Amino acid sequence: MNAKDVVTTMWTELMTAKDPAVIQKWVAPTYEQHSPYVQTGREGLEQLVASLRDDYSYELVRIFSDGDLVVLHGIHRNWLNGVFTGGEAVVGVDMFRVVDDQIQEHWDASVPVIRISASGRTQLDGPATVEHAGMTQQSANTAKAFVQTVLVDKQHQRLPEFISKHGLAQHITEIADGAACLTQALAVSDKEYVAIRKMVAEGEFVAVQSEGRVNGQTHTFWDLFRVDAHAKIAEQWQVAAVFPDVVPHDNGAF
């Protein structure tokens, strides 16, 4: 099986059917967890499934893969008791590393669903299916250059050279569409990008995981992009989540 099929099957059987028995099949004995709310190893996943609310559900919006890495972009409804407890919906990015048809490693980040946005778009709407498989490398090059140049190196004046001539469809809730609005938002943002950690590209879609800080606190920044035929960014989604100082493992955020 390819990595995407492994993750899709595991996720359906574990998180949708809520069957902890499948952990032994799909999860490696040396499974390494980076989620700040779940213990590492198979035991952590077993505890996770046991803690799911009866009315928990997951809606997958996007999935794409690159080699042994797979990214899911979707919405969790009625999440964990003891972490989120009011029936909240959260937008999540989950990334898995697959080795020999088993999940070897997992990273994630999630933020609450916000109903109002500056652009009128939601945190998840927009194109979701890979239509241009041959664009993978150029999409990866564009996204990496943008994040490194504009976000990490803070060369905000260069932002327009990376944006589609047809404009930028924006899904970060506090920012309106267009390159000018993103430039203005970055100038006053409290998000400090430190370094790119991982990147997953398939076709016109790219997910970039960056290490970051907000007011000195470690965060994981996930920027998802759709790149157009001219190798320019046409659409952006983001999940930026705190990585607490105290977590139930010592694997770190990245």
Rank of each mutant, 00 (worst) to 15 (best):
T122W: 05
D101L: 00
F146C: 07
R115A: 14
Q148I: 03
I114W: 03
F146M: 11
V147R: 00
E161L: 09
T183Y: 01
Q148N: 10
E105K: 07
V99N: 05
T129M: 07
T149I: 06
V99W: 02
P127T: 12
H156W: 06
L168E: 07
H132P: 08
I175D: 00
I103G: 00
D125S: 08
T183N: 12
N141Y: 00
A140T: 03
Q123Y: 12
D153R: 07
V152F: 10
A133H: 12
F146G: 04
A143R: 00
K165V: 08
A133T: 09
F162Y: 14
V98M: 03
K165T: 11
I175S: 00
S139V: 00
Q123W: 12
Q138T: 11
A133P: 06
T129K: 10
E174P: 02
V111R: 00
R158K: 15
K165L: 12
L168F: 09
V98A: 01
H106M: 05
D101I: 00
R121E: 12
A143M: 04
A145W: 00
I163C: 08
V113W: 13
V147N: 01
I163L: 11
I163D: 03
K154G: 07
Q137R: 11
T173R: 05
G134K: 10
H171A: 07
H156P: 01
A118R: 13
A169K: 13
G134M: 05
D100W: 04
Q102Y: 02
G126T: 08
V147I: 15
R158G: 10
A143H: 01
V111D: 00
I103L: 15
A179H: 06
V130E: 04
S117H: 09
F146E: 02
T149S: 14
V150I: 11
T183E: 14
V130C: 06
K144L: 12
K154S: 12
V99S: 07
H156L: 13
R97K: 15
I172N: 12
Q137M: 11
Q155D: 14
E131M: 11
H166A: 14
V113M: 11
H171Q: 11
G120Y: 09
D177L: 01
A109T: 10
Q148F: 02
Q104M: 09
I114H: 08
Q155K: 15
T149Y: 04
V99I: 11
T183V: 05
F162P: 01
S110K: 10
F162H: 07
L124I: 15
Q104C: 03
I114C: 05
C181I: 01
A176T: 07
Q123S: 13
H166C: 03
P160Q: 07
I116R: 10
H106P: 03
S110L: 15
D125H: 09
V111T: 13
A143D: 02
E105G: 06
D100R: 05
Q148Y: 04
S117N: 10
R121H: 15
Q157G: 15
L159P: 05
S164E: 10
F146N: 03
A109H: 01
V152Q: 05
A145M: 03
D101M: 01
H166S: 12
T183H: 09
A179I: 04
T136V: 10
K154A: 13
H156Q: 07
G178S: 10
R121S: 14
R97I: 03
K165F: 06
